[in-house]
Amino acid sequence: MSVRLAVDLGGIEMKNPLNTASGTYGFGWQFEGLYDVSCLGAITTKGCAAEPWDGNEPDRMADVYGGMINSVGLQNPGVRGLVATAGTYLADLSARGTAVICQVAGHSVEEYVAAVELFEELAPWAAGLEINISCPNIAQGGIAMGSTPEGASEVIRAVRPRTRRPLLVKMAPARVPEIARALEAAGADALTLINSIPGMALDVHTRRSKISRPTGGLSGPLCHAIAVRMVWEAAQAVSLPICGVGGVRSGEDAAEFILAGATAVSIGSQNLYEPDCAPRILAELAAWVEEQGATDVNELRGALLC
């Protein structure tokens, strides 16, 4: 028996619920050769701004118990650079049936608007744009525009009129219900949560941070239970579709997000540990839908029994 896996993530038609977390998946082409990337429902590309960014100084990552900490700082080639180097590949991937979601980075409302306008002009193959208002590594001392309902909705209100494409918002792991409500009111089509969790990892012998800045973003399995809880809270607060992200290693981990109310699920750090994990996780997720006696994964969204 085959089960129906197609989902609609705020206007983004996905042939199955699996997506990739921005920053763990390059621009998609890096994974070709490891498996057929078009098995995924969607990919989300590395956040790009209107102009290229250098990102932070090395060291940019360290292993921590149950995951890793990073301080990449959204190094990116700019929207033009993305289109010049990966545009042909991404257009082809889209034609192969995988939705291409482009993440948008910025330091200010004006920069987000400029980047969205460039994507509009240069990336006709993009199925949607994910506005990253919650990178923990770009602002001095913490999370930027997305840390308050006012800041978050200001960005989305500004970019909303610039595109008809579905707008996703990458949310910080903080104040989830109230910011989710503000984003819904501001015109977002879907929410992606959670971004990495601000954390610290210190070398006590040298008394230095293990990365080039005092704080970074935690990702990996250590985040999973927190992310499931936050997806559940967001699903209670708003009617927007949600893409759950955080520590997915298996089909069961993905299924937890769906039970908590997510429409789609992104694979993040596991892409780095086990670069060919996506087909395995997809098969496990499909087997779970079948095991539950459902014929369509949409029947199980938010189907938590408590």
Binding site: G23, G26, Q30, R60, Q75
Partner: peptide
């Protein structure tokens, strides 16, 4: 030498500053 996660260009953690950018 850099700390790195993926090893194949997906995660941007192993940056080296060069005369033509990161």
């Amino acid at each position: 030498e850099r700390t790195m996660a993926c090893g194949f260009g997906a995660c941007s953690t192993c940056a080296v500053r060069t005369t033509s950018g990161m």
